[in-house]
Design a protein around this nucleic acid. Structure first.
Lengths: 354, 354
DNA sequence: AGACCTCAGGCAAGCGCTTTCCTGGGCAGC
DNA sequence: GCTGCCCAGGAAAGCGCTTGCCTGAGGTCT
């Protein structure tokens, strides 16, 4: 591997001059020398050692991101937003998948700290786990104490800058929507109970149902993995225990897709017999059949905002931006069977604010 | 930021000893000192500077991966395979998205080289572009000359180790399948013509149709972006020009989903009036309606194999592993209308090897 | 009891780069 | 013609870590 000294030697200059030419330093270099250096670079196919540069330079350019899983569309969208702002500001992104393992999340905080990133962004639900939360906050505090910046997406446990999707309001919207359609027997396909996202959404749903004097008994809430197969399993359990359900709420779209798959396999007509609502509005939601009614979260925007917060030197007080959720009506919901709906519905699949 | 010297000073030992304790060096350290060092580490929340370590150490642990877009399920699956093998061998993965921009791909090769990665893996279609190919090969050769390892997935332009999905054979399978079902008026929803993946699959399809005396006129092949919206656009163009088509082949599943969406919006029954076949077998293919008949590629396996090749010091001769494609029959294909099918089909949605 | 061996621990030389500070040559000014 | 200034280029000091080599204390063998 060619080094800067090799280049300098070949060009007949000092490493200092070579460095200045290569980095376009403000210090002027004679045209003649500049050319010789550039020729040497080309001839040797020289590429600077990024680690040596980082070690020698003072300022850090990279930003670290910890998500549950980038290949999950929810995080893919958020990452798109993060990426956009980062690229605009000439920052490099290091993306880490925790695969919903809190320990791995802690490890990644250390790893990113070791990589000297300028900021760390934590995306995705927090955990109901006091020990973990304390440990995480300690590590983040240590990082911030040495000048690192931290921003979180959708986690209340951290006291710094945050972008918060309004999960609870989204849950309320679902309750209102289904109540209005006449649904009274509602089952919930929920993600792991240990995730705050799950409980927030559930709390909102409960609140709006309670406002109408309805409660959500425990046996009508089934927890499973936050993915398609979890949705299949939870829906099956729900239906087996309670065949009379007229609506199923999945606490994210992946689970909703699983729910639809199970209902189809059992030949349950959606929405004629059972309505299904999801959460997140991932891109695929419009392409399943029936197209999924869901609660939209501005995922790309959330990523963009979080990155802006992280890169902006920042006010003294922590900034918290709450982004609203809205209902997107498509074809997977309809009036509860045997009940006159409160409000007539169009058959189309257009979206509208909730 | 605490440094190793800080730790050493606080523990009352030399940096050398501290380093040995922290890295679990083979050199023995007295229990007493070891404890003091570890305590100092904890108290200072010390995390080693990864760049300094990489600079000081000789061996490289990270592996670089360049894909078109990880959030595309095709690459997400491949990445899963890469990740698995990398993790097993204690390697860290740096993932770069080129977003199908050849220039960005070149930049990333340099970037990864600068990061001193042990290997670079290029996943995703190559380009029909001689200049780019030459440039890329030059850069890769320079990297390999300094001990770097390179493996590619699905690119013939590189002469080293490679994992090749059998795109051409897959194309042939599609042709055979549709011919057998009686389809004679077939349209193709294709990705960008500049991608070798597109042309390979198309070539295979043409070959099998030619074997039956059929040709594929240019106006029945529409090129667009390799995603859902590209599928919508190309299918619309296809149908407008030729309403009598009985089958549509999409050269990947994302486009196929777009095709299904467009057909639904025009109320064209699938597969009764038009059959649709995809390519890749992404996970979502089974959850759209009708479930998508497609050609399965062992994506995870491809990633795993590529990583194995890249990490295995390697034979002198380049190793090329060709992985087979197989048809997965689901519900989006059926006999051509007005034609008695060559072979009767079951109504179920089970998958079976082709 | 003396010579020798063993082994824990420290010294210091890098890894490849950036950047401050210094040097020495060329020029203008007096 | 001499002093002083300006400026391009170089020397060298790190950045934070690893590791080969050396040292000196303790133990062993005769």
């Amino acid at each position: 591997m060619a080094t800067l000294s090799d280049v300098a030697r070949r060009a007949g200059v000092s490493p200092a001059t070579a460095s200045r030419v290569i980095n376009g330093s403000s210090k002027p270099v004679t045209e003649d020398l500049r050319e010789r250096v550039l020729r040497a670079v080309a001839e040797l196919q020289y590429v600077p050692n990024a680690h040596a540069q980082l070690l020698a330079r003072s300022h850090r350019m990279a930003v670290g991101v910890i998500v549950h899983d980038v290949s999950d569309p929810y995080f893919a969208e958020i990452t798109r937003g993060l990426q956009r702002v980062a690229t605009d500001q000439g920052r490099l992104l290091t993306i880490c998948n925790s695969y919903r393992d809190p320990d791995r999340e802690l490890e990644y905080v250390e790893l990113l700290r070791g990589q000297q990133v300028a900021a760390i962004i934590l995306a995705g639900s927090g955990y109901h786990d006091a020990t973990f939360t304390r440990l995480l906050n300690e590590k983040l505090a240590a990082y911030e104490a040495t000048g690192g910046r931290v921003a979180v997406i959708g986690r209340h446990e951290h006291s710094g800058d945050a972008v918060m999707p309004d999960n609870r309001a989204g849950g309320r919207l679902i309750g209102a929507e289904l109540y209005e359609l006449g649904h009274r027997a509602i089952g919930v396909v929920a993600g792991p109970a240990v995730l705050t996202t799950t409980t927030d959404r559930l709390t909102g749903l409960r609140e709006s149902l309670a406002a109408h004097g309805l409660s959500l008994p425990e046996h009508r809430v089934r927890h499973a993995e936050f993915d398609r197969d979890g949705g299949v399993a939870a829906t099956a359990a729900l239906l087996d225990a309670d065949p009379g359900l007229t609506a199923i709420v999945a606490l994210n779209d992946s689970m909703a897709i699983g729910a639809l798959a199970l209902l189809r396999s059992r030949s349950v007509p959606v929405p004629r017999q059972v309505s299904v609502m999801g959460f997140d509005d991932m891109p695929i939601a419009r392409d399943v059949t029936p197209a999924l009614t869901t609660v939209r979260l501005p995922l790309v925007e959330m990523g963009a905002r979080a990155m802006s917060l992280a890169l902006d030197p920042g006010a003294a007080a922590p900034r918290v931006e709450v982004l609203p959720a809205e209902v997107v009506r498509r074809d997977s919901t309809g009036p509860a069977p045997e009940v006159v709906p409160v409000r007539p519905r169009a058959a189309g699949s257009g979206a509208s604010a909730g």
